[in-house]
Design a protein around this nucleic acid. Structure first.
Lengths: 348, 348
DNA sequence: GTTAGCACTCGGTAAAATCGAGTGCTAACA
DNA sequence: TGTTAGCACTCGATTTTACCGAGTGCTAAC
């Protein structure tokens, strides 16, 4: 599968077949039951024909190598982040249940409207599909050019600068002037702004008129307002679906609080998702993403592209013991559909 | 104070002074400690010079009348919704701490940008100020008229309809045509749309051209796309601040989940807030608002107006045992500042 | 290398004991 | 008549104890 591309920081030494089987059994059962897994149940579950004692010996080794951990002496084993990582890296592609496949197809067959709406709906879909909290990020194409600029006057001093970009995004800015302007002057300023800005990007240098008349002042004002946004403007949008899942999926109020408070910070979420994508990985487990408050989370990310360029991502956030196979399959399916949706019939 | 205007469904019979004092003492202490309150601590706290035994007799009466409840036989008393209601209705206006006042002034002195941004920032301010989850609703003026319409073509078949309304809001709609149109035709359609729609509202009937040429088709398409939104378009925006507070303020995962899942439904939140405003009340306690999942919540709402018309509201959501006085003061202060902010210097 | 056997650990649960805050009632009191 | 001290009683919360058993590590035999 194309998902796991780069190896994690310290390449994980391959385990021999039996250790791998045991590790997998532990992970699978722990994901299912949320309980520490003992040697005997592994011996029973896995199709290795070995006794619990043998399994135990192997488990000691797996623990020494950092794949498993023991909550306390007389308990079973629990996977560590490294254990999950191994599991995920060696996961064969999951396949979606027919019901879910239908749900996705159905959704994309009927969804309509602006990109923003579609992304928001998609985040709800993902959350419904997986029972985890979903994150959908629209990155904006970054260097879109201006298709149209328009200055609309609300009253003599308040104007609205509406800008349309080639990627279909629209921004508005208030322009508050200290002098009055007539509708005619505003219209003229609008005309000049169009002439000046159409086809430019944020990088383009623009020669503003230096005259002192009202129209020129308006133009200068508008350009500067628009430019002022440049540093922060990335056109990113974040849609979070099913944040209430956080409360049902994590135990411990404190964890819930921490995770929620991360999700509140949209900028942070975008960064997180993009970091994971940047690394070419699609799953970040536990502390791999470096956000301490999310150390008990796993994040699964799949890119959405348009004309070969990354324009966004869908993500899912759950506990480290999340259902990787199903969720990865869902993320992949939805991202594919989304890519097709934007690449194909529509553009917003 | 102007806050509590209408009496609740069944008018609350006034309590005699001593009962009122006792009820208040119970409410105050319970809000503080989250524990059932016993007769002796009431006797000690309140400045009534009576023994616990007397307090107890009164408490029995208060319980019979529905103001207090007993979690179990040998515990202290806890206020019921009705008890909180009485408390709130007889609350003298709280006054904000100087630090908070400064924080608010500071905020409004420096906040800039579009209405949307201001509202979002405000919701964060409110949440920081009160340590509860905040809700800021911008209602949109409802019957704004169109100031400008513009059709921008992305490519031969995809166009973007950008509409500016008199209240400063901007909408965009994709117009996807089954035929190709030249830039010239698009520009002409844009011109005609302007002529056709400027000054109209959603209520206005519009005479669309019935010709069969590309321009006329585009115009018809655009008008119908715009009209299609009418039923849902209310221009409402919701900004929720500090949703992670939910996890620290309510006990019980299930409650947290329920509350969060309500907060996810923006439409529902708007309705809730507007319902509370409609009733002329500014606090809804427990089941007063009729949303079962929020039955352990209190919601405090204060309106934001522009030119005497309600254009939004700020709200705070906490447990029924929330710090009413402080929070009501904060809500009121912020709503006043917000009203002044929009009424005065800026318009977005 | 594998496994049966076994002593050992230790968290979880249940039962028992205890504590004490708070109650309702009653009888005495002003 | 309203207030209060006194008192028996209730009942959740906390602590204590005992115990169970899942699971371990080790060892000796296979």
């Amino acid at each position: 599968m194309a998902r796991r591309v780069k190896s994690p920081p310290q390449p994980i030494s391959d385990l021999d077949a039996r250790k791998a089987t045991i590790l997998e059994a532990v992970v699978v059962e722990h994901i299912d039951t949320a309980q520490p897994v003992g040697s005997s149940s592994v011996a029973a579950t896995s199709d290795l024909a070995v006794s619990p004692a043998t399994v135990r010996t192997e488990m000691v080794a797996l623990e020494r190598e950092g794949y498993l951990a023991q909550p306390h002496t007389s308990a079973g084993r629990v996977p560590t982040d490294k254990g999950y990582r191994y599991f995920v890296d060696h996961l064969e592609a999951g396949v979606l249940g027919p019901a879910q496949q239908r749900q996705i197809r159905e959704f994309f067959a009927h969804v309509r409207g602006e990109v923003e709406d579609v992304l928001e709906q998609t985040s709800l879909l993902l959350s419904r599909l997986t029972n985890y909290t979903s994150v959908v990020v629209g990155s904006g194409s970054g260097h879109a050019s201006i298709l149209s600029v328009q200055l609309v006057n609300l009253d003599a001093r308040h104007h609205l600068l509406v800008t349309v970009f080639s990627d279909g995004s629209v921004t508005k800015h208030s322009v508050l002037a200290s002098y009055e302007a007539t509708p005619v002057e505003v219209r003229e300023a609008s005309r000049q702004l169009n002439a000046l800005l159409i086809g430019t990007t944020f990088e383009t240098k623009v020669q503003v008129p230096s005259r002192a008349d009202t129209v020129a002042k308006l133009v200068r004002e508008a350009v500067s307002v628009l430019r002022a946004e440049q540093p922060t403007f990335e056109g990113e949008q974040v849609y979070i679906g099913g944040s209430s899942r956080v409360a049902e999926v994590f135990e411990g109020v404190e964890t819930v609080r921490k995770v929620l408070s991360i999700l509140e910070q949209e900028l942070l979420v975008v960064t997180l998702v993009e970091d994971i994508l940047d690394k070419g990985v699609s799953v970040a487990i536990g502390s791999e993403h470096g956000y301490e408050p999310l150390s008990s989370c796993a994040v699964i990310v799949a890119p959405v592209s348009l004309d070969g360029e990354n324009v966004g991502a869908v993500g899912l956030l759950g506990p480290t013991r999340m259902k990787y196979r199903e969720v990865m399959a869902a993320a992949e399916a939805v991202s594919k559909h989304l890519t097709a949706h934007f690449g194909g019939d529509e553009r917003g």
